[in-house]
Simulated scan of single mutants.
Amino acid sequence: MPKTSPAARLELLWMMLFIRRFEEKICEVYGAQDMKTPVHLCIGQEAIAAGVCAHLEREDYLFTTHRGHGHCLAKGMDPYRLYAEFYGRTEGCCYGKGGSMHPAEPSLGILGTSAIVGGGIPTAVGAALASHLRDEPRVSVAFFGDGASEEGVFHESLNFAALKRLPVVFVCENNAYAAGSPLSSRQPHPEIWRHAAGYGIPGVAVDGNDVQAVAESAGAAVARARAGQGPTLLDCKTYIWKGHVGPDCDCARGVRPLAELQAWQARCPLAAFRARLLDEGLLTEAGYAARLAETDARLDADIARAKAAPFPEPDALYTDVYHQRS
Rank of each mutant, 00 (worst) to 15 (best):
G145M: 07
D146P: 04
D146G: 06
G147Y: 00
A148P: 05
A148K: 01
S149T: 15
S149Q: 12
S149Y: 08
S149G: 13
E150L: 15
E151A: 12
E151I: 07
E151K: 10
G152R: 08
F154G: 04
H155I: 11
H155V: 11
E156R: 07
E156D: 10
S157L: 09
L158W: 09
L158S: 09
N159L: 12
N159P: 14
F160D: 10
A161D: 10
A161T: 06
A161L: 09
A161N: 05
L163R: 14
K164M: 14
R165I: 08
L166K: 06
P167V: 01
P167R: 00
V168T: 11
V168F: 12
V169W: 00
F170N: 03
F170W: 05
F170M: 04
V171G: 02
V171E: 04
C172I: 01
C172L: 02
C172V: 03
C172T: 04
E173I: 02
N174V: 02
N175K: 07
N175S: 07
A176N: 13
A176L: 11
A176V: 07
Y177M: 06
Y177S: 00
Y177L: 06
A178T: 08
A179P: 15
A179D: 15
G180Y: 14
G180D: 15
P182G: 11
P182A: 13
L183E: 14
S184M: 14
S184A: 15
S185E: 15
R186I: 08
Q187W: 08
Q187V: 12
P188E: 06
P188K: 02
H189Y: 14
H189P: 12
H189Q: 12
P190Q: 11
P190A: 13
E191G: 01
E191Y: 12
E191Q: 13
I192R: 02
I192H: 00
I192T: 11
I192K: 00
W193D: 04
W193R: 06
W193P: 01
R194E: 03
A196P: 01
A197M: 06
A197C: 06
A197R: 12
G198W: 05
G198T: 08
Y199C: 09
Y199E: 04
Y199S: 06
G200M: 09
I201V: 12
I201K: 00
I201A: 00
P202I: 04
G203T: 02
G203C: 05
G203W: 04
V204M: 01
A205Q: 10
A205M: 14
V206W: 08
D207A: 09
D207N: 13
G208S: 08
N209P: 11
N209W: 05
D210W: 12
D210V: 11
D210A: 11
V211T: 13
V211E: 08
